[in-house]
Design a binder for these strands. Structure first.
Lengths: 157, 157
DNA sequence: AATTATTGTATGTTAGACTAACTATCTACA
DNA sequence: TGTAGATAGTTAGTCTAACATACAATAATT
């Protein structure tokens, strides 16, 4: 009495009397979302000890690369709005990973800089990132990685 | 005394005469996230009238493609857990786009099917998707689109 | 028949994205 | 120069989504 077992390969074409646009599988956006989801999931697994999200690591990294950067500078680089940036900065500051200071050149701006703890966290994060990237890049040849990055850059500029 | 003016449209390449971001630019995950963000943003713009998210459209689409699908079936296809799936289904049901029914083959399962309204919403969504995809694919040649989809599939399986 | 797995549900937490309103500061120009 | 508008940061509130946990009902396995 064994059932057909209902194997479900997600990337399988659905048959059915097809209409309009075609299959959802031909939609680039669909694949970007799925790839992002898979990447995000693996990331949080890899970072479960560090308790850092992708966004948080990116912010730490960018602040380290650009001492005294202002929140709007960060926001521009990461394509976030000010409010979202605030929330992330607040979280990182609450954990003592970075500090806000006053800008000497512009009274509206604040400077962001990592604390020693932040630098330490970033160092650990970079190790984890390496592992994460290895998982990601294991699917591709070197040339393909370059190509993928280049293509993705065309989307986000 | 006119400054370079520093226009910053979110989806515009950031020029700024400065430093490159550093090695973070070689991180595939970083680009996936940025590309996802840009895509998501354009999607919500395109869909602001319809008030549908990527997830919701995907669910409508998949339910349409697979009548009587159960929530777990959806969850597998979209790589979501049951709780998240529930939340999305609830939202769509509340708006009258789909209905839950009882499965005849498995008392635990429920069937999902679009209502006429749901089908209508999906039809509108597909038009908008076409526009959205055009925006996305305009950056690529046909061959490149295939390549991109294939590469992204390697990530999400 | 008893145990285990699956499915849907309910609840609560968290991150992140966005809007709107507000203050302080800076810039541009009439 | 004075003022109107732009920019930077903040706060508050809303929304989507992901995840964890717990529970009840049903199926499958032993």
């Amino acid at each position: 009495m064994t059932r057909p077992k209902e194997i479900l390969v997600p990337t399988t074409p659905h048959v059915e009397g097809d209409e309009d646009i075609g299959e959802i599988n031909n939609i680039v956006g669909f694949h970007i979302r799925l790839a992002h989801g898979a990447t995000y999931r693996h990331f949080t697994e890899t970072f479960s000890d560090l308790e850092l999200t992708q966004k948080q690591v990116s912010v730490l990294w960018l602040v380290d690369d650009h001492p005294d950067i202002a929140q709007t500078g960060l926001a521009k680089r990461m394509r976030m709005d000010r409010a979202t940036t605030m929330a992330i900065i607040n979280r990182l500051q609450k954990r003592g990973f970075l500090v806000r200071g006053k800008s000497k050149t512009d009274g509206r701006k604040q400077t962001l800089n990592l604390t020693d703890e932040g630098r330490q966290a970033l160092a650990s994060a970079k190790v984890a990132i390496q592992e994460h990237e290895k998982w990601l890049q294991s699917r591709f040849k070197k040339k393909e990685v370059e190509m993928l990055i280049e293509m993705l850059s065309r989307i986000h500029e």
